[in-house]
Simulated scan of single mutants.
Amino acid sequence: MLAYSVKLISRMDPLKYLFEKPALTGKLARWLLMLAEFDIKYITRKSVKGKAVAEFLADHPVEGPEDIEFEFPYENVMTATNDVWMLYFDGAANQKGFGIGVLLVSPEGSHIPLAFKLNFEVTNNQSKYEACIVGMEAALEIGVERLEVVGDSNLVVSQANGEWKVKEDKLKLYHQDLEDLIPRFQTVTFTHVPRLKNRFADALATLASMVEIPAGVKLRPITIEQRDKPVFEYVMIVNEPNDGLPWYHDIWNFIEKGEYPVGTEKKDQIALRRLASQYIICGGKLYRRSHCGTHKLCVHGTEATMIMEEIHEGVCGPHMNGIMLAKKILRQGYYWSTMETECV
């Protein structure tokens, strides 16, 4: 090899590092000295592929004129609609039990969560396969034709795409069942995502694995609601009597006199004490404490309506939306319990 120039074609970054790094120490320096007597040029495999294609096209030019057709060969692609469903799956195998979670998302954005507790032992990879297959079967039952399967299991996704071989005997039956389901769809794609982007299915699987369901007991569907305020504020708003008094009447009486409303239960009294700790009376007016140092003046009735109108459409009013209007009123130093709802 000493009499020839050598082109080294490789995808390995360590070789590129060895030939391109200007200063080397230790074993790398000794290796480079041993290779220095050879005329070696490092070339990446990707660039060689591109060069081969270019050389092939240059060696085989097309002779004579050609008829160029501008017709689109697949006209049905132009009329394709975005009717692809999303399937998120995950499985859980821990000391508490085994469970799987599935989330189907329609093209319109509707979410269909499914969770199953497995009453038999499975490995972590088997639980992932169980979740994927159960989710695909559920999609077939509701008539889904185009499906994108998303999961955080690199093993299941890679084996479904044919990138990895199935070596474990326990997974071969699952993989065969998965391959039997794929032709029943018009199109199916498998995508691997990080675990953070698959938290909903992960939560369903964990919940199913840890919950204990007694025999013969039927569970109603679980509803997850969103709340924007602490529970004690909801209690005060719901139980607020329509007697013409301001919304902060009970808070004022408790701070000034230490009195509770007549007929209140113990839990309501605890909620009132916690709520009153956020307010102070100064100069004959009630203020809500603020972390920024500027306390908010508590207003009600026509005064609150006038503040909303002035800030929204008064002099130099920006006509902002409800949420931004409520935030600006807070910055101006005013507060009432239903301000965000009324601003919207």
Rank of each mutant, 00 (worst) to 15 (best):
P230W: 06
L8A: 05
T123M: 04
H111A: 04
K96A: 15
R273T: 15
K117R: 15
V62L: 08
D268P: 00
V238M: 13
R146A: 01
K21A: 11
E313W: 07
R273K: 15
A23C: 05
G258C: 03
V315G: 00
S110A: 11
L178R: 05
A215C: 06
A80D: 11
L104D: 02
E63C: 11
G91N: 09
E313T: 15
T189H: 07
P230R: 03
P22M: 03
M308F: 13
T338G: 08
A271W: 05
M236E: 08
V6H: 06
D83C: 04
H60Q: 03
H312L: 00
D169E: 14
V102P: 04
T223F: 13
A203K: 06
V105E: 14
D169C: 04
K117V: 10
A80V: 09
K167E: 09
Y335D: 13
E233R: 12
V53A: 06
R288T: 08
L155C: 05
I40M: 05
V217Q: 10
M339L: 15
S106T: 15
Q226L: 14
L219A: 10
L272R: 07
D83H: 02
W252A: 12
P73S: 11
L15E: 00
N253I: 02
P73D: 07
N125K: 07
N82A: 14
L325Y: 06
V105Q: 13
G314W: 07
G135W: 06
K218W: 02
V150G: 08
R199G: 06
L18F: 01
E55Y: 09
I281F: 03
A271N: 14
M12E: 00
N94M: 08
M210F: 03
I222G: 02
Y88Q: 10
I112A: 03
G258M: 04
Q95T: 10
Q186W: 00
C316K: 12
H300G: 05
P230I: 03
V193A: 08
M34A: 14
S110G: 05
I133S: 06
G162P: 10
F56H: 04
L275E: 08
E108C: 06
K41P: 00
L32E: 02
Q126C: 11
L196M: 13
G258K: 04
